[in-house]
Design a protein around this nucleic acid. Structure first.
Length: 339
DNA sequence: AAAGTTGCCAACCGCACAACT
DNA sequence: CAGTTGTGCGGTTGGCAACTT
């Protein structure tokens, strides 16, 4: 049995609000406030509307200082950078833009801004192999497994693409030195920017530098036998995204924001959790970060501060998490070792 | 001119969570 | 402490207008 409905569905009006309803609601709230109870409000003023509907109408259209349309370039940039870093948490994004509502920003993003930013890249990447998650989304609903994971990954991919796009278009610096409220929501370890550095193994494991933008580094040893398959897959992923991999050495300027768990799968195997086979699973399980994510062994030495060359700063996520709330400590590095 | 398609956006829905009893 | 209620949020839908065929 579900919970009781918030109102009598049969006796409430739905659809667009009339001018009289607006005036009635506005006058009431301006004079008496909401009384702390939206559910009771419509009854008090004789409105045949659901309390939730009244709340939405007030918050999105009737309250003072609401702006509609006419988003500025600056607002575009704020929306983009926040979307890339925290995803579709519109209420948080809206909180950074006075006068804008979450609904407005959501609509603006979905109908205009996303297309504006992704339009060119979509065109160019169509000629490449589609990422499996994209393919899934674009070729109808192949929802045969783990739809949440797929959706998350698609969103992460979109954010990756946008981050790339944004770097070229807006030069918006990205940083995870955000208040905890802005941290990504899906994984306790958080979404994070990662920068893949295709350097030689020794550099990749211990000496990977974190640049001045304070980005989290996802270091991979490219030449390890166990990671050959993974790298090949990564190459495919990168080409789908329109990146060029250096043949060897050097730095792949691939900065992205993604769900760690989902991206681990998509980057290494292009598969969701439920579709990873035994052999692949074993391969994946060999990664300590994977063990950490799935809690298969104690977590130590895998989530580190940016000063991870200093062993004393290494520690399990719990301690790293505590450090992360300190604005003086920038970000954390995820190291993949012993691939 | 009619029919079909696309874009836009206001509003709704269901869920999660906090507050209250 | 469990059940209930209200609030807030993000995803989705429905309807209208503009555009295309």
């Amino acid at each position: 049995m579900g919970r009781a409905p918030c109102c009598d569905k049969a006796n409430v009006k739905k659809g667009p609000w009339s001018a009289e309803e607006d005036a009635n609601l506005k006058a009431c709230i301006e004079e008496h406030g909401t009384g702390g109870n939206w559910i009771a409000l419509p009854h008090k003023i004789g409105l045949k509307r659901c309390g939730k509907s009244c709340r939405l109408r007030w918050l999105n259209y009737l309250r003072p200082n609401i702006k509609h349309g006419g988003f500025t370039e600056e607002e575009d940039q704020i929306i983009c950078s926040l979307y890339i870093s925290i995803g579709s948490r519109w209420s948080i994004i809206a909180a950074q833009l006075p006068g804008r509502t979450d609904n407005d920003i959501k609509n603006y993003w979905n109908t205009k801004l996303k297309k504006k930013l992704l339009g060119k890249r979509k065109e160019s990447s169509r000629s490449h192999r589609l990422h499996p998650n994209q393919a899934l989304n674009e070729e109808g609903d192949g929802m045969n497994h783990d739809t949440h994971s797929q959706a998350l990954s698609a969103s992460a991919l979109e954010r990756m693409q946008l981050h790339m796009q944004l770097q070229g278009l807006c030069k918006v610096p990205f940083s995870f030195s955000n208040p905890p409220a802005l941290w990504p929501k899906y994984h306790p370890l958080g979404d994070r920017v990662f920068q893949t550095q295709l350097t030689d193994a020794s550099v990749a494991t211990h000496e990977t530098a974190i640049d001045s933008a304070q980005q989290v580094v996802f270091a991979v040893k490219p030449d390890s036998p166990k990671s050959i398959g993974a790298n090949m897959q990564r190459e495919l992923d990168c080409s789908a995204l329109g990146f060029q991999l250096p043949s060897s050495g050097g730095t792949l300027s691939m900065q992205a924001c993604a769900g760690v768990q989902a991206d681990l799968h998509s980057l290494l195997y292009c598969k969701s959790t439920s579709s990873v086979g035994d052999e692949e699973h074993q391969q994946l399980a060999d990664l300590d970060c994977y063990k950490e994510i799935y809690g298969e062994k104690e977590s130590s030495n895998w989530w580190t501060t940016t000063g991870f060359e200093d062993k004393s700063l290494m520690g399990p996520w719990d301690s790293a998490s505590a450090l992360h709330s300190d604005p003086m400590i920038p970000d954390y590095a995820l190291r993949y070792e012993d691939l």
